[in-house]
Structures are given as structure tokens and as C-alpha cells.
Nucleic acid binder design. Structure first.
Lengths: 193, 193
DNA sequence: CAGGTTCTGTACCGGTCTATCCAAAATCTG
DNA sequence: CAGATTTTGGATAGACCGGTACAGAACCTG
């Protein structure tokens, strides 16, 4: 064995994630990453081997914490429709609290387009898991009678996903709470049984 | 008088816009811009004075052509709801045709956040004009009985705007036509009288 | 405490970035 | 055709980029 790292790797990833979230991939220089994490260049390259890989770790970290946040939100409500409501309103609240930073996955998709296969795969995986979770919740809502059965759960899930994306875009554009909540309410209206 | 420019300025802006659209601001180097426009460095800097200014011109150009496209789409339908439908389906069709590039304004907002006042102002202005157009169309739909009067036109406009943004995000993420049309249909259902 | 191993800070590498400079070419007016 | 003015291409400046090399400090094992 030998000298141990003086920092916590997860903490560093978290700090890097926030830097990327604020300024994008290209917009975040390795020096920015040093400043954000408090680490030296060598430590970063020794641990993560490249900016690109650290970015992927950041995406993964974002994805995981996002799942946790969503699950926590879902558990605050009983029936299906209220769960979706909690999700939408929770998204609004988070955006307001975190300073309109939007969604890292969205920002990444917008920045990269389809020019990076690895990044694309991660974004897509996150989308898929999000959709699966939504579809599951919607199915329970259809079962308990709070969500319309006039459309397939998968389609409604796509709709909710798009709505959340739209909300985050509004937020990034500087929208206020009332407008965002109104949009959320209208989207919920489209789901109601 | 003296030697005239050998190129068309608008054409150059259009080419630059497409380059920025594909690769983002930071991702587009001045060399890329030279290649895209077919101009030399000097011509570009002589005409537009900086990359940043050319970018703003590109945003403006995008905004103007966007208005034209939208107006053309609106004129293909009679009543209010069908107009909104034409808009949503036209957006889907455009995304499919243009190779899932998303919306330049959205991409820009995602890349810049609120770090650039001039860019932000342009994005916001575009959003405002888009919302105003939507609200107007929705009001006519409320008048002709095809769109619900249960919500203020401004709120419904925000919702449609968010939906279009959501559709563009789906597209950028690689979504196919059926999913996108399903989402559009659900959104329209929320508007119907 | 000695030896092996890993981490950390500094300096630096080639490459690329935006932007500028300048001379040569091109055009219009008179 | 001459002179004034502008555009144009190529070279280059100066800064910053991601990434690396290396020496010495820090740590664990035995």
C-alpha cells in the first residue's frame, strides 16, 4: 500500500458535475475543474484520466442522484396522478431553488447533439430509465382510476417527460413560479381520468 | 466608392447560423466559420468584427426566419386548434427533416445559461414574440370555440411553448415520429374545448 | 525506521483558440 | 488610366487549451 488520496472521490465528482452543469462541457476548462474540486491537475488526471471521462462520471452521478430525488418525490403522494403532480411541482421547486440551471442531461444533449457516442448513450440511458419510471407510475394511476386509460401509458410517459423538459427550459429562460405551475397544471389536466 | 464585397452578407450569416446550430457557440471555431461561410478570416472580422457579434446576428436571423416559418404553418389551417396542431406537427416534421438539431434558441440557452446578457436578451425576446403569437392564436381558438376557455390564453400559450420545447428536446434525443406525434396529440387534447 | 508505492504541485508540451496586421489585389470615381 | 478606398489572403501574435513529465512529499507495510 501507499499514500492514500487526500480527497473524497465522490465529492470531487459532485463538484465537477456542478461545474459542468453551470458552464457546459466545452465551457468548463480543466482549470475550472481544479478550482471547483479544490484539486490539483495531477490529482484529477491521476484519478479520472481525462476531462472527458470525468464528465461521464459526472453524468452518471447526476443520473443516480436524479433517480433518488424522483423516488423521494414520488413517495410523498398516494395515487398515480398525485405522484405525477408531486414530480412536476417538485421539478419546479428544484429549479427555483437551484437558480434555473435546467437539466444537466438536457444541457448536454443540446451541447453535444449526436457527436459523441459515449455521452449520447448515457443521456439516452437516463431518458429510458426516467420514462420507465414514469410509465410505471402512470400505470398505477390508470389502475387506481386517477389517470386516463384513453392512451397507452408509454405515450403518456413521453408526454410527461416532454413536459418536464419544457418546464426546465422555461426555467432556464428565467420563467417564474406561477407560469411554471400553470403549465404543470395544464399538463396534469391532460392526464386526468 | 471602392471595392465591393464578393459575398452576400445575409448568406454568410445564414451559413454561420447553421454552423452554430450544429456545434454550439464554443464548439464552433472561427476556422469552422470560415469553412461554413466560404470566407476568409479577414472578411469575417472585417464585416462582423467578432465571433460573438456574428453569433448574435445568427440568433437574430434565426429568430426572423422562425417567425416566417411559423406564420406559414399557421396559415395552413382555419380554426384556432388546427392552427396550433399545424404548428406542433410542423415542428415535428421540421425536426425529422433537419436531422434532430433541436432549437437554436434552446441550445443557446442551455449552453450560456445566464452568463451572457446580450445573448440572454435575444433569447428572451424570441421567447416573448413566440408566446405573443401563440396567445393570439389561442385567443382566436377560444373565440371560435375550438380551444378551452377554462384557462387564460397566456397560460395556454406557455403550455404550448413548453410542449414545443419538449418536442424539440425529444427530437434532439433521437425520438422518432410516432412518439413525437403522440406527445403533440396529447398536448392538443389539453387545449381542446 | 527503511523501502516501496502512491499522491501532489510545478513546470511545461504541442496544439488550437480568437483576433490582428499588413501587403497585394480588386474595384469605383474622376 | 490614376488615385483613393476597400476587400482579401496569409502570416502571425498572444493567450489558453487538454494533457504530461518529473521531482519530492506523504503514507503504509514490514
Amino acid at each position: 500500500m501507499a499514500r492514500p488520496k487526500e480527497f473524497d472521490e465522490q465529492q470531487a465528482v459532485d463538484a465537477a458535475m456542478n461545474a459542468f452543469w453551470d458552464r457546459g462541457y466545452e465551457g468548463t476548462s480543466t482549470q475550472d475543474l481544479c478550482a471547483a474540486t479544490g484539486l490539483g491537475r495531477s490529482s484529477i488526471y491521476n484519478t479520472f484520466s481525462s476531462k472527458h471521462e470525468l464528465f461521464q462520471r459526472s453524468l452518471e452521478h447526476y443520473s443516480v442522484t436524479g433517480v433518488h430525488t424522483r423516488n423521494a418525490l414520488l413517495d410523498t403522494a398516494e395515487d398515480g396522478l398525485d405522484r405525477i403532480r408531486a414530480l412536476l411541482e417538485g421539478t419546479v421547486a428544484e429549479e427555483l431553488k437551484s437558480g434555473h440551471r435546467g437539466c444537466l442531461m438536457v444541457n448536454t444533449a443540446a451541447e453535444f447533439g449526436d457527436r459523441d457516442a459515449a455521452v449520447n448513450a448515457r443521456v439516452r440511458a437516463d431518458t429510458e430509465s426516467h420514462l420507465a419510471m414514469l410509465a410505471g407510475t402512470i400505470r398505477t394511476g390508470q389502475a387506481d382510476g386517477t389517470i386516463t386509460t384513453g392512451r397507452a401509458a408509454a405515450e403518456l410517459a413521453q408526454f410527461v417527460h416532454a413536459s418536464i423538459g419544457g418546464l426546465r427550459l422555461m426555467s432556464r429562460g428565467g420563467a417564474g413560479e406561477p407560469e411554471m405551475l400553470a403549465v404543470a397544471e395544464i399538463a396534469l389536466g391532460a392526464l386526468a381520468a
